[in-house]
């Protein structure tokens, strides 16, 4: 050997260790029927009982303030009379509703009101979300957009009462200047009052849809949009083919929330019109409020409330069924 090899000691050690290593692989397969080892740790199922005791007071409180009244609502729906003497009338409260014109027109108005609100809120909400999404001022815009939502509905109603006011209201002035409104005020005309209520609801709750749609837009897969563009899609086509199918699941939640709110939130309507003029805005929840708390016909009120509840549940189920097609899943 002409050259001396100066390998470091660590390298030589490593080589020694390598040589000393005995490579023997012993594979012992355990027969399937062999005794399994005894587990040394248990699943946390046993703890659940303990959690239940901790939660019991809260559950009892909730039961008292929500289940108990619900039970009484059902009982009341089969009774006639107010706080004092009551009389058991069976299904009379329900059968009477069939011939109650106000009840039926209340449904029609409720559907009209809710449909307009939902259509405008989803349309404008998604549009706003698309505009805001990816904007340089996104954070600021979202904060600004959310402000109406932070207002108590009754307060919003009062605010719009001023805006619609027939003597000094801003909107009153604008609509009159534009020639849309000829005489009278916005809220005292049966032609415009419903639209005025829809406008308030849209103003207050579109931001909710925007917020939810914005979250949905964030999870639209970019590569699918790009693939579709290379496939030959225009931006508009891309939006309806890729973005919308991905938005459906979140929009479903938004629509569900808003439609149920429309069926029960009447704060701003009570403040603005109270169902007038000439019953033109007397949607079913307003009528329910009137029957129960103005005429104190609690039995009939309870019956209306139950019907409203059942219809809400059925519509909710249908809505979920329509939107939750297997096509929009698949990931």
């Amino acid at each position: 050997m002409s050259q001396t090899l100066s390998l470091s000691q660590t390298t030589l050690d490593a080589v020694d260790r390598f040589r000393a290593r005995k490579v023997s692989v012993e594979v012992e397969a355990r027969p399937l029927s062999a005794e399994l080892p005894t587990p040394t740790s248990f699943n946390p199922a046993a703890r659940k009982a303990y959690y239940f005791y901790l939660m019991a007071p809260a559950i009892a409180l909730l039961a008292f303030i929500s289940l108990y009244p619900f039970f009484w609502l059902i009982v009341m729906a089969f009774q006639k009379g107010d706080m004092g003497a009551v009389e058991w009338v069976g299904f009379k409260n329900f059968t009477d509703l069939a011939s109650d014109g106000r009840f039926l027109s209340g449904w029609v108005l409720l559907f009209k009101y809710s449909a307009m609100c939902l259509f405008l809120q989803v349309g404008i909400g998604v549009l706003l979300a698309v505009i805001v999404n990816g904007s340089r001022y996104e954070k600021f815009l979202v904060t600004a957009l959310l402000m109406p939502m932070m207002m108590a509905p009754a307060v919003a109603g009062l605010l719009w009462l001023f805006l619609y006011n027939g003597t000094f209201g801003w909107y009153h002035w604008i609509f009159q200047s534009l020639g849309i409104l000829e005489t009278g005020s916005i809220l005292s005309s049966a032609k415009t009052s419903m639209y005025a209520l829809v406008l308030v609801d849209v103003w207050q709750w579109t931001p909710l849809i925007t917020l939810i749609a914005l979250a949905g837009l964030k999870r639209v897969p970019r590569d699918q949009m790009e693939a579709n563009m290379v496939d030959g899609a225009s931006p508009a086509r891309n939006f309806f083919a890729i973005v919308m199918p991905n938005l459906y699941p979140v929009l479903l939640i938004a629509v569900l929330l808003r439609f149920m709110d429309n069926f029960r939130f009447i704060d701003h309507i009570l403040v603005l019109t109270g169902g007038g003029p000439a019953n033109s805005t007397k949607i079913l929840p307003i009528y329910l409020f009137e029957v129960a708390f103005k005429f104190f016909d609690l039995g009939r009120g309870a019956a209306i409330a139950l019907v409203l509840l059942v219809v809400t549940i059925i519509l909710g189920k249908i809505l979920v069924g329509v939107f939750d097609r297997p096509t929009s899943g698949g990931r």
């Binding site: 590569d223 699918q224 790009e226 693939a227 579709n228 890729i242 096509t327 929009s328 899943g329 698949g330």
Partner: peptide
Amino acid sequence: FENYALYPH
């Protein structure tokens, strides 16, 4: 595309 980018619906 690398991750195929198929349209799931």
